[in-house]
Design a protein around this nucleic acid. Structure first.
Length: 419
DNA sequence: TCTGGGGTCCTAGGACCC
DNA sequence: TCTGGGGTCCTAGGACCC
């Protein structure tokens, strides 16, 4: 059975600010989004004041008890640099580290003997010493369980920041108390659907009929259920897959009512999008432009987007020209626009042709897929599983028996083969 | 039993994540 | 005055092909 751990920086953005400013220690600190609009990170002291994630800062700062809160505009260059430092430390503990987000890293602890909780404590103290970033460590037989363990390590202060849920008997009692919505991948919509079936806790969910889960929550839910049962479906991938798209979008600081203002904004977004593209050494073959009125303010609502294929490019001026032309078609007079953006998709290295395979495609996933395809073909006969089967988690076209349904999804078969 | 079958590509929209 | 900015994956359905 594999062993995963998830190492997660506590109040990461705030901790980064604290790392360079000792006076912030023990004080309520928040980091704000672009334009200083909302709170996107807060220390435990700030949480204790009732400041919620995503709350508009202009509302929070008015509250008397929040007058003393120290606040920072976000500094993503700093946070990315701190994230890399944490990664470097973790690599001294395991050769298999997958950065999942700026503040979370999955690690494989396979083959590491002894007391893993003790190992986790050593990871924490080493990271803290080297980077001044406090962390929590969750350990489990699957990524999804490691994620839950990490959350528990954060909540239960008697654990010393480390929680090991490898043993099933240690899990089940906790699972019976946790709402299913706390599981990684189960959001509000899924939780509501499950509630309708009387499923409230993680334990309820594990005990739900697998086919039923698939019908309600698709393969995504089925995979999560397997993971919670202790069967690993989500492998570690150390190679970052090639970026699939990028976006530059903003809420406007002051609402836009004139075409000229919109034109300038879209041009700036497109220009910046081109810069990002060049930073990654890629060109884009698909461009999307959108604009919309505020969701929060009264008045006439309007929103629209235009998406189209372009000659692959990363040239900012070309992108600006194409994007503003598209924006012009979307523009309607008489509205107060609050938001807009430019998105780029179909990213490839320059000069790539249709059908090229890029080395940056995740080799771990690819190897798993090919092995699984081979096994399925061996089982159902050569050529039984055809293209279109692009992963464990996608459509499988299985040519056995009657052909009636257009696609036969045999996720269960895939799981059997894996096991 | 069965009312063409199998496939690709594209788009839109939903859901979730940090 | 002021309400984030990114991302990923999955599903469904239409157009089109042989």
């Amino acid at each position: 059975m594999p062993t995963y751990s998830l190492v997660d920086g506590n109040s990461f953005y705030c901790s980064c600010e604290r790392a360079f400013n000792p006076r912030l220690k023990g004080k309520p600190v928040v980091v704000l989004s672009n334009n200083d609009g909302c709170v996107i990170a807060r220390t435990s002291e700030a949480k204790a004041l009732g400041i919620r994630m995503g709350e508009p800062w202009h509302e929070v700062r008015k509250r008397p008890e929040c007058k003393t809160v120290m606040w920072f505009s976000s500094n993503y260059a700093l946070y990315a640099d701190m994230s890399r430092r944490v990664f470097d430390v973790l690599e001294t503990f395991s050769p298999h580290v997958e950065p999942y987000s700026i503040d979370e890293m999955f690690m494989s602890l396979d083959g590491i003997g002894g007391d893993l909780a003790e190992y986790g404590r050593r990871i924490r103290s080493t990271v803290l010493k080297a980077t001044k970033i406090p962390t929590c460590v969750g350990i489990g037989p699957t990524k999804t369980i490691a994620k839950l363990a990490n959350k528990h390590a954060k909540d239960a202060h008697d654990l010393g920041g480390v929680c090991d849920l490898r043993e099933e008997r240690n899990r089940l009692e906790l699972f019976g108390r946790w709402p299913v919505g706390e599981v990684w991948g189960i959001g509000p919509a899924s939780a509501q659907r499950l509630e309708r079936h009387g499923v409230r806790t993680v334990l309820d969910f594990i005990r739900m009929d697998a086919r039923h889960v698939r019908d309600e929550l698709s393969v995504v839910g089925a995979r999560i259920q397997e993971e919670l049962k202790g069967n690993s479906c989500l492998p570690l991938s150390m190679v970052a897959p090639m970026r699939k798209g990028l976006a530059v979008t903003r809420s406007f600081g002051t609402p836009v009512t004139e075409w000229q203002g919109m034109e300038e904004a879209i041009a700036a977004f497109a220009y910046r999008a081109g810069e990002k593209l060049r930073e990654h050494g890629l060109v884009a073959g698909h461009l999307t432009v959108f604009m919309r009125t505020s969701e929060f303010r009264p008045g006439p609502k309007y929103g629209n987007q235009a998406a189209f294929t372009i000659e692959p490019t990363s040239d900012s001026l070309t992108l600006v020209k194409l994007a503003t032309r598209a924006a012009h078609r979307l523009w309607r007079d008489g509205y107060t626009y609050a938001k807009g953006g430019v998105m780029l998709n179909d990213l490839t290295p320059p000069g790539a042709r249709t059908g090229d395979l890029f080395p940056s495609k995740d080799p771990v996933k690819s190897a798993n897929l090919m092995a699984t395809l081979d096994e399925l073909n061996a089982r159902f006969g050569r050529g039984a599983v055809r293209s279109g089967a692009t992963g464990l988690d996608r459509k499988w076209t299985v040519r056995t028996g009657n052909l009636s349904p257009r696609y036969t999804t045999s996720f269960e078969d895939a799981l059997v083969v894996r096991a």
